[in-house]
Write a protein that binds this DNA or RNA. Structure first.
Lengths: 120, 120
DNA sequence: GACGGATATATCGCGTGCCGATATATTGTC
DNA sequence: GACAATATATCGGCACGCGATATATCCGTC
């Protein structure tokens, strides 16, 4: 549930606002932080990251995860690190504002429930 | 924005929890209550009402809006009134709970923002 | 040294469902 | 008699979410 792109974007930007990270890590963080309710699947995450980068909201770079005992060209495993750009920070602010506004709207309805328990 | 069926359902059930209503009215109420942010368009509303009725969450009946000076079979304008069924009340409770849980999940990310304003 | 599972990134395409466009009828008003 | 508001309803194209799938490295262990 809630793997809709809108909320996914909010979540990814939020996580990156706490510090740089990479895809797989984001997946784990999302699941952990939400007690498993939020499953950021590859099919959702990677297209989203690409899109965010295209929009200039995040930047990325490849870094060898271990350059130990490498002989020469052997680079071994690499990870693609993502970090939030200034533009991304701004966007996050907007998204958070939008979320809070949406929440206010929904509350305007949900909050008005007439009776918590039917009296009969 | 937010014309997604999930939230639309929540809103319609909430409005009907306050008393019976009809389609056009629901449209107006939704817009009014949310200061225009929530546009419950016909394309969204009527399919939704139909679906809700099929699921037994709401019931409906046609009522002539004015039976004045009618001659005989002339029924004039009619309105389709909807009201929440007991099952619908239960569903509303579930939806509200789901919404609140979702909100908690999002807050788990959004709330942790490191810095409100970048220090530079 | 090979097998399996975890780590890690990435793409593709199809099924679904959103909602804009559209249709129809009545009422009010100028 | 024309136009706007009221009122309900359907339809289908196009968008896109995301499951399935592919690829590669790393590590433990037998």
């Amino acid at each position: 549930m809630l793997t809709g792109n809108e909320s996914a974007e909010l979540v990814v930007l939020s996580l990156l606002a706490e510090g740089e990270s990479y895809g797989y890590q984001l997946t784990k963080d999302a699941a952990g932080r939400s007690e498993g309710h939020l499953r950021l699947t590859p099919g959702v995450l990677y297209p989203l990251l690409r899109q965010l980068e295209n929009e200039g909201l995040i930047t990325s770079s490849w870094d060898a995860v271990r350059a130990e005992d490498s002989d020469e060209g052997a680079e071994g495993r690499k990870r693609k690190w993502y970090r939030l750009s200034p533009k991304g920070k701004r966007r996050l602010g907007q998204r958070v504002a939008a979320y809070e506004s949406l929440r206010k709207v929904i509350d305007a309805f949900v909050g008005v429930r007439p009776r918590e328990e039917g009296s009969r």
